[in-house]
Design a protein around this nucleic acid. Structure first.
Length: 392
RNA sequence: GGAGGCGUGGUGUAGCGGCCUAACAUGCAGCCCUGUCAAGGCUGAGAUCGCGGGUUCGAAUCCCGUCGCUUCCG
């Protein structure tokens, strides 16, 4: 059983590395598509390999509720259960403390453009929260059947052991961008206490455990958290939590945090990002990413191209015989027109969601591979400049 | 030939005297989505209620006529 990370090349703060896991080596920087319920929606493991995925991220809370950790363990663990023999990371369920808690109550995501006082209204309706946070852990009302479940640092790590991912995450609390300094500090301190409990429960030789830096968009808190989490004996470090109200805020958070983390450990940025984010975050020293954006956007008709995102449902594509992107090597662009894809979306045909997902993942994973190579070649700055110049 | 029913945005329907400057679904258009409650959400355009006349303070709603569709009987 191998669990090891080594940096093999650098360009400024950007770095190329190898993350060895029991299920294979991840060449970093890398992007992990999200497969919350042990499936990257609409794709088979073969599809995933074809688009260039090295690893995926699944979710503890969702799998704990359904089908249950005991069952997955009985069936040989996640890799065997879902037929994916390559690296898997599991999120701890800490994010659900937010997404089913304050995110519902505030009607926001982890990067909130809408703040109280801003003229623009929230894009999502506010709803009653399904998660309540206490010192011991998070009390969830299942979104499936309303049943009550307490997830703690200990139970989260144990469930992740049963699921058997290669890389696992500490149980933390992701705060809302609308949380004030006082609340964000209290949540961060609680996450720090939970970090110790996660370490105490962790079987270090089995899985690589990542500690999570919190602190919202507050400078002092991020520094405090970066120092604290960075000094603990985790296998890797992740940056989580609210990243403010803009990309600038997000970059500030990375600039404050990353220099405080040990250089020899892998750094994961939770829940980011969009194509351009890969450049700006790798540039600051991030090694791995996970994000629902490419897959979710694909299912909603948002398709990546070198000149920005297009919405395939638009009328202008009704009779467009061109592929999504001229010159794209993905299965979708090789065989299908924009007009056909638009038809599939308008007709609500399943194939549309799959073809769109294939394209977006191929796009982002190919971009990541190019970016990785550019660090080796010493052309990162040029490649980045060129990409950003075209991306709208 | 006779009796009845129905005609409301592109489509299917709701409303059956004032709260209708007409509702809902779907479709259409645009926007949003960053550790997935997410094949989801938000916003918008679109009908003077078949046509004509009448009753009434007031009609999509009641009455008469007319046209169209439809069901049953012959």
């Amino acid at each position: 059983m191998t669990l090891r990370f080594q940096v093999i090349g650098q360009a400024g703060a950007a770095r190329v590395g190898q993350l060895e896991t029991p299920h294979g080596v991840v060449e970093t920087p890398a992007f992990f598509p999200v497969g919350t319920q042990a499936t990257v929606k609409t794709l088979t493991p073969d599809d995933l390999q074809a688009v260039g995925a090295q690893g995926i991220l699944a979710n503890t809370y969702h799998l704990f509720l359904r089908p249950g950790a005991d069952l997955v363990e009985e069936l040989g663990g996640l890799h065997s259960f879902m037929g994916w023999p390559h690296p898997i990371m599991t999120d701890s369920g800490g994010y659900q403390a937010f997404s089913l808690g304050l995110a519902l109550e505030h009607g926001v995501g982890k990067i909130a453009k809408m703040f109280p006082g801003n003229a623009e209204a929230p894009t999502r309706p506010t709803r009653k929260r399904l998660a309540r946070i206490g010192e011991d852990g998070v009390q969830f009302s299942s979104h499936l059947d309303g049943s009550q479940h307490l997830l703690t640092p200990e139970t989260s790590i144990k469930v992740q052991q049963q699921l058997g991912a290669d890389l696992i995450l500490a149980f933390d609390e992701c705060t809302s961008p609308l949380s004030d300094l006082g609340y964000t500090r209290a949540a961060m301190e609680r996450t720090h206490r939970w970090a110790g409990r996660c370490l105490d429960t962790w079987a270090a030789d089995q899985q690589g455990l990542y500690g999570i830096v919190q602190g919202g968009a507050y400078h002092d808190l991020r520094e405090q958290s970066g120092r604290f989490i960075g000094a603990l004996p985790f296998f890797g470090l992740a940056i989580g939590g609210s990243l403010g109200r803009s990309k600038d805020d997000m970059h500030d958070v990375l600039d404050w945090t990353i220099p405080l983390l040990p250089e020899d450990k892998p750094r994961h940025l939770l829940g980011i990002g969009e194509p351009r984010d890969l450049f700006t975050c790798v540039e600051r020293g991030i090694d791995t990413f996970d994000c629902v954006a490419p897959t979710r956007l694909a299912r909603h008709g948002g398709l990546y191209t070198a000149s920005g995102r297009l919405n395939i449902r638009k009328a202008i594509y009704r009779d467009d015989p061109a592929p999504i992107e001229e010159g794209c090597a993905c299965q979708t662009c090789q065989g299908f027109s924009r007009a056909y894809l638009r038809h599939l979306f308008v007709a609500d045909e399943i194939l549309g969601y799959r073809l769109a997902t294939v394209h977006n993942l191929h796009f982002i994973l190919t971009l990541m591979a190019r970016l990785r190579q550019s660090i080796v070649d010493g052309t990162f700055v040029e490649v980045k400049r060129e990409f950003l110049a075209h991306d709208r």
